[in-house]
Amino acid sequence: MNIPIEYYLILSGFMFLVGVAGVLTRRNAIIVFMSIELMLNSANLSLVTFSSYMGNSTGQLFVFFVMTVAAAEAAVGLAIILAMFRNKLTLNIDDINILKW
């Protein structure tokens, strides 16, 4: 039984929108960061889908690059979040507001 490509694309689009909504509405820096990872993973899902339906392996290769880079980004990002928490003892991005015009 073959699942049509649209199903995967709709799922991936939905995941992407959940990620965007999470970034825009959540106030905790870690949860915002998790939502960003969700966006990257939704892109990975569509890359794999296209790759498998076209019989072209470039997309799957790209997913490996995205995962590796996302891991590097997570390392730097969590370090930044940790440095912030040490100084301020909060991760609520509404409280992180000394820079304002």
Binding site: S12, F16, G19, V20, V23, A29, V32, F33, I36, M39, L40, S42, A43, N44, S46, L47, T49, F50, M54, T58, G59, F62, V66, E73, V76, G77, I80, I81, A83, M84, I93, I96, L99
Partner: peptide, 24 residues
């Protein structure tokens, strides 16, 4: 750096999804 990181990574999400659709 926290603000730059969160918004920069958000932008990367858009770019990667765009690349996925262009590739498809």
């Amino acid at each position: 750096s926290l603000k730059y990181f969160l918004l920069g990574a958000f932008a990367t999400g858009f770019i990667v999804y765009g690349i996925a659709l262009i590739y498809g």
